[in-house]
Design a protein around this nucleic acid. Sequence first.
DNA 1: CGAATTTGACCTGCGC
DNA 2: GCGCAGGTCAAATTCG
Length: 488
Amino acid sequence: MEVSNEVSNKDHKLEREMREVGELSLVRLVNDSTSDEESELVSLSLGISSTGKHEKKIRTENSRENEDLKEGLSLGLGIRFDPSAIQNQSTESRCDGEMKEEELREIWPPSKVLKTMRTWDKSEASQHAEVKKARVCIRARCDNLTMNDGCQWRKYGQKIAKGNPCPRAYYRCTVSPSCPVKKQVQRCAEDMSILISTYEGTHNHPLPTSATTMAYTTSAAASMLQSPSLTTQLGLLNSDTVPLLNSNVLYNLNALNFTSSCHHVSKSPHLFFHSSSISTSSSHPTVTLDLATLQTSPHIGNFTPSLSFIPKYSSTNVDFPSSTFSPLQSSVLHSPCYGDYFNYEGLITPNRNLNGSHMNTGKQPFLGHLCRSNNITNHAVSKQSLPDSIVAASKAITATPKYQSAILAAALTAYAGNGLRENHDEAQSAGLDLNLGGDMPYTTKTIYPNSNASRYKRMSFSAPTAPKINSVIFQPSHASKSNLLLDQ
DNA sequence: CGAATTTGACCTGCGC
DNA sequence: GCGCAGGTCAAATTCG
């Protein structure tokens, strides 16, 4: 009995470690692909929450085990971060229709086979336990038990977290048994109608079209957060560039495939985010995207955020000049594309351009996408040409290699959200199927509530403790000028 | 009957 | 070192 337990524990250890190695390798890949100068980024990314010593250990482990992992990881790597791979994937799903769930399952071996792969994962992970993964937290009003992000999840645990009477459910991505992505779902204590979904990790497998938006968005947000280039160089950012990066994450987030009950979001013709935040808490750096305060206000142009940012990697406070919300962000948010990201069923519109041809091969500049989206008009919103400030911002960013990983992440997000349909009628006239995104149903059924109180006898219901985190917070303000505060 | 969920037990990290 | 809280495991249970 003891022996079998020991073996079992070793298996889990291996599983964790294998997943961790996958994450680290992926981080390296995305950085390598951005520029020649990314070697610095690689090490910084790896070192986000680890010491140099640990980093060294990771690399040693990686090289030792790399050969065995190669096969298991190569597919996911290519699809995840290689733009051409993304293009291929997208192209395939556009040409042949959405990659069906069944097809995905055929690609991956049965769970029993891949259980061995997970076992692999664990041995590495335990050795790299200190390497904390970035998380992307999404708050959205949703009546359903869970937000439909297009992925398949399997519940593996549930627990009451301190300060919230609602149980937190733990899910694992089951599209691929070796996928390291996890999700936590919990109701907001203050407002039970708000569902808080926290994503961790990056998918290492092909995703259903309906899931790509979330995947790329969370990936981009996480990359943004993890990018030392962004967090260490904030002194070079201005109020245009910060929203520039964030806008694309937020922009793409609006394509989330909410279930129909999330009408507050899915039926909104024009969406914008009241707030998003980045926290770099000691345990897990987290990007929080708040969809719960979405509004359909036509006065988006008045949206002026207050911004505070305390970079994790720098002890130096940075003062940003006051300014209104980035015109680029404003234009993006105003974009008909933005509003039309949801079709009338609240589903993601396909990644096609107005001609029905495939868009964005992954070689187009990031800003190009944004400019193009600005050209597609059909709504009664003001059209803005790209202001000089944005051009300046783009120059500033592209001239700074250290921003490139963040840009890449944002660009991937843009790719995922590219080729939006102008509206449903136009799509139909073009002979397109707007529902290519499909809607992979959840396999989970019950998350909340849990009546078994005895299980949580240790829980306490004290008020949430004051955040000890550094944060970036975008908040709406009706003041003429935004407040850019820095404190630590 | 296999797959998915539930839930008590256990592990781990962190603060004191 | 201890206790707490978050997170995970895995046997039992439920579901389709």
